[in-house]
Design a protein around this nucleic acid. Structure first.
Lengths: 207, 207, 207, 207
DNA sequence: CATGAATGAGGCTTCATTCAT
DNA sequence: GATGAATGAAGCCTCATTCAT
């Protein structure tokens, strides 16, 4: 009954969040056990409940915090930028950068949505829609000004987001490219596509 | 794990695969229980083991079959097409179409990779790489022929795949757009981007 | 993973009920653990759930079965008896006898009422009221015919039931008195009281 | 376990006893948790241990205090009364009155006996026997003086106690009858029974 | 004295899997 | 092939209790 010295006090909650992020990212929410979590934190299982009310609540907390940050930081980044092309480029740079830096939160925020309680689910999906709207607003304004030529701004929005978000699955900090380079490549792809005008094959239906 | 047609009429194994697909898609592999599965099939839990050897094996089976189909059907589609742009367009059309029609297999094939045993995981990842290679080969050849202008064909490949695959998350058969329309929009985005040349703002660093 | 031979098949449920009766009587429902129960039955804890759906449901089952038996057997015993005094005497004899023979069910039926879920609680209390009504009906009819002289038949009913039921707490089969003797003593007490008329002390306010 | 009045105003120990009484009565000792208790008192769980040494000790305290009061007040009430009938009537009046007024202590004193540690159990049972002896002494003396005609004074004692104690389960202060009326009804039942002599049916075996 | 965080044991329940019938 | 009952491990969560602050 001697107490092993573990992480005490207000630091424990932070350790739980960090370990939870790691383990959910590694194994998934359903597959992560509180035993694993406690052991990662260096604490007994029961002690977790001094800080979280439920495994489900921990998941929600992590995702909610991520979504709040995402929205807040995006708005800071876009503040004062007006031209749709510039806004779009800023959006892309921000999104790529954030998704590289907070890979695990992002991944969980997508893949564990279905593990959320209905109420929690609705709340998060609402926030996600707000974020998507930031992009589609840009696309709509650019389209209206004749700057963009897109078959469907909604589809384009989904496509761009999916493409950018994919960065999480392959980017390695130690790899060949820097965050900035990746952002630039994506910018180019989004804005100009693979085939600059005038180089389409003569028999292409795209012409 | 294959079962000959028994006297009970509808093939139980097929029912198990179908129900497994549905339940894993809905709840995830970890969250799906064999009791749910048995109940969906209309059979007792123990009976499942006359058809599958293991929950894990069922997952592998489903994903493996999906990957085999994916590769096989892609190769049929690309057969005889030579020009990189045309190959790319065919790839896009095929990918979009397949991902819309077999949404659940596709979803599971991505999201439950981490639930696979190490050996199974390696096998599936190998197949996935073959599929990705089909795309990057196209990009590399197009780039070599001066048809494409991409900062990095590997990044572009990942980006395109992610964008196209995203169709699974938003496409509704009852929605505004047909599969063909969606494929065309994506084609345009990939090949020409949002901003056709000559319309970039004068102060854009893209120029 | 070798299976220890335990109680198999349909006998297990009976063993669970018997062991449950014993353990709840000994320790109380809340204090009884399913580990104890399983060990008493000679089975693993999880196996209990092949037969019961819930600890709570086992409790309800036991109490419900007891109440059903109680009512059914009482009605058999009273059938064909008309005179209120005879009916009362039969009721007493039955109640004492039943409560001696099925001490544990009776005890649980009283003391664990509060552990029942609200719905279960209501159902059992309804049955109990039916049983009490059997007695108060007898008292009411006797009172109406001038056979009984009771200040309040409802109070008398509660009093008689409490007195008779108390037999559970002290009767030992190996004791000095037989079931029949106990029933007779209680009959006398109920019908004639301690002090036969004419022997009250002269200064008693009872006169 | 006694606590001097601290600076926090209302005596916490008294609040704990009161809340304990309420919660044990409502849910039972096993089912009551110290968290509930602390919350009812308006204090954190850990703080309880500044006042009690153990959950078990709190139970014992409550029951012991009740038994001590019961005996003490009974002796005061019976002091100076000699005639067995009068003593019996006083006993009945006292018992009914006390059990109505201190319903919860009484209930706990019976129903939670089995939750007591063996040592505590023995001590309480000893006190309970003293109390019962007060009644059986009266009955024995009355029987010896030819005032009572009882088949068995021990059985009669148990029966009377059970009947009287039952008042706890049905009496409502807001009900039709006052404490005094109830006591009188019970007195009548105990002393004269339901059927005053001379009114037994001609064919009754009681004659 | 009160608090908050820790412990370790143990609660009920569910799981994948096995196997005799 | 299907069933029902068994296993043993493990799931999340709660408990009484301790103790540094």
């Amino acid at each position: 009954m001697v107490r092993t010295v573990g992480s005490h006090g207000p630091k424990t909650m932070e350790a739980i969040r960090k370990a939870g992020l790691k383990l959910i990212h590694e194994h998934g929410y359903e597959a992560m056990t509180l035993r694993q979590l406690a052991s990662e934190v260096g604490v007994q299982v029961g002690s977790l409940y001094n800080h979280i009310s439920t495994k489900q609540d921990l998941l929600f907390d992590l995702i909610k915090a991520h979504m709040d940050d995402l929205l807040e930081e995006l708005d800071i980044r876009l503040a004062g930028i007006d031209h749709p092309v510039d806004r779009l480029k800023s959006f892309i740079a921000f999104h790529v950068s954030y998704h590289i830096l907070r890979k695990r939160e992002v991944f969980i925020g997508y893949s564990e949505l279905r593990s959320l309680d209905p109420n929690h689910y609705e709340e998060i999906v609402g926030l996600r829609r707000q974020y998507e709207r930031r992009l589609t607003d840009i696309l709509d304004r650019g389209q209206a000004q004749g700057l963009f030529q897109v078959g469907d701004t909604a589809v384009a929005g989904y496509g761009i987001l999916a493409m950018l978000t994919g960065v999480c699955t392959w980017f390695r900090p130690s790899g060949r490219l820097s965050r900035e380079q990746v952002a630039e490549i994506y910018c180019d792809m989004v804005l100009r596509g693979l085939v600059p005008d005038g180089q389409l094959p003569a028999d292409s239906p795209l012409r």
